[in-house]
Design a protein around this nucleic acid. Structure first.
Ligand SMILES: [Mn+2]
Ligand SMILES: [Mn+2]
Ligand SMILES: [Zn+2]
Ligand SMILES: [Zn+2]
Lengths: 141, 141
DNA sequence: TGGGTAAATTATAATCATTCTAAATAAGCA
DNA sequence: TGCTTATTTAGAATGATTATAATTTACCCA
């Protein structure tokens, strides 16, 4: 059994009920900064927690992202990835292996000018291309 | 019958075959800067061109975006929108009415530092929130 | 100008990530 | 401990997009 204390603390701080699916999914995201999809989360945790359902992974990621504990990212092909690093940063999407990498970016508010009369909830900066690993493999082939 | 000369010229310049679906879809996008989805494009043009198929709208937008004539945008909920303004600019996605608005942004290359060893194909900057129209309507209610 | 050929279109079926539904279960409070 | 309500769960449904395969068309060349 893993130590879920960090996940538990964060859930409590948000006033969310402590449940096994939430602990397992959130702890997985805290430990794995790979920006997984729900499918990847499910398959990564189902061995250690056989009773978890696909539905719960979807429900939990939805709840956690609505509460702001995690980020919900949409890839260039429209698939949803989740990220427990919830402070502002950009993402690089590899067109070959579909991996998602973090980008360090300067403060975005310095140049963002909202449309007059609009309210902005979030800003996203992303890039797509070929990741270092795939670039290396291409040279070999 | 509309004047498709601008669309035809651009298709020729890209070495693409001139077909009715391509002319109709591309001309529609040149005239309507609303960032429509394939579904919206189809329903907007089907009255004037009853023989067009859904498949063709998907095929044409795919072909035009692969050739660079149009941009393919992915919304925060993962749906694809198309834009005949193919130079760099950002987009604002309204969470209420799902409209997509253009954002003027400074040159992005000034602050983007690619991950070492990676190749970048494109950079995207987007914001989400409530558009001016929806903000105004909210005040009334 | 009229085939020939590869490309594009079309209708339809298939895919598949995500959402919905409703019954069973469990968290948290008194 | 028991109550109330939120959460979980399995399974079905959804819907945007993609795949398939037959028909049609663009356009090159003789
Ligand atoms: Mn990240
Ligand atoms: Mn635009
Ligand atoms: Zn890669
Ligand atoms: Zn709006």
């Amino acid at each position: 059994m893993r130590d879920f204390s960090r996940a538990e603390k964060a859930l409590k701080a948000e006033g969310l009920r402590i449940t096994r699916p939430r602990l397992v999914v959130y702890d997985y995201l805290l430990d794995n900064k790979t920006h997984p999809t729900c499918d990847q989360i499910y398959h990564s945790i189902v061995n250690d927690y056989p009773h978890i359902s696909f539905s719960s992974v979807y429900n939990v990621t939805e709840k956690l992202s609505n509460s702001g504990l995690i980020l919900k990212l949409v890839s260039p092909c429209g698939e949803m990835h989740y990220d427990s690093t919830n402070c502002f940063h950009g993402h690089f999407y590899c067109l070959k292996c579909s991996c998602v990498l973090d980008l360090d970016l300067p403060d975005v508010k310095s140049f963002y000018k909202p449309i007059s009369g609009s309210t902005t909830t979030s800003i996203t900066i992303s890039a797509e291309g070929i990741c270092p690993m795939c670039s290396k493999n291409e040279q070999v082939n």
